[in-house]
Amino acid sequence: MTDSSQDYDVIVIGGGPAGLTAAIALADAGARAALLARRAPYADNRTTALLGASTEILERLDVWRRCSERAAALKTMRLVDDT
């Protein structure tokens, strides 16, 4: 961490799929965006299901081509609510 300060138009808090997408989209729109997320000491290997609109925005931001090779079509979804 440094003592230097910078001005941002927006700060996105959270480095999950939604936070990363928001930060990229804001920067792509011309905002001075900062992403504030914890640095995980390990890889987060959880599965994330992306529906049509999610992949469309990632394509528009030129991100999908970088991760599409690791994606697979969702064939079955089972939701479990333990409340």
Rank of each mutant, 00 (worst) to 15 (best):
R46D: 04
S68G: 07
L35V: 05
R32L: 00
D82R: 09
R38W: 06
A33D: 05
S5I: 11
M1A: 15
T55I: 12
I11A: 00
C67H: 09
M1V: 13
L51I: 14
L58A: 09
I11Q: 01
D81C: 03
A18K: 01
N45R: 12
R38M: 05
A29Q: 12
L58I: 04
T83H: 13
S68M: 10
A25E: 03
L50C: 02
D44F: 08
R70G: 06
R60Q: 10
E59V: 03
I13R: 05
W64Y: 03
L61E: 12
A43K: 14
L79A: 02
A18T: 09
R32I: 00
L79G: 10
E59S: 07
D62N: 06
I24R: 08
A53R: 13
D44N: 15
R39E: 09
Y8N: 06
T83N: 14
A73N: 13
D28Y: 04
D81Y: 04
A18M: 01
A33S: 03
D82F: 05
A49F: 09
D82C: 13
L51M: 13
R32P: 03
E69S: 10
R78F: 10
G19T: 08
V63L: 06
A73V: 13
D44S: 08
G30W: 01
A73M: 11
L61K: 04
E59I: 07
L36R: 01
W64C: 07
G19N: 03
G16N: 03
C67Y: 08
L74R: 08
D81W: 07
T21I: 02
G16C: 02
L79V: 08
A27V: 01
R38F: 11
L36S: 07
A37F: 07
A18P: 11
A23Y: 00
A22W: 01
A29P: 14
A34S: 08
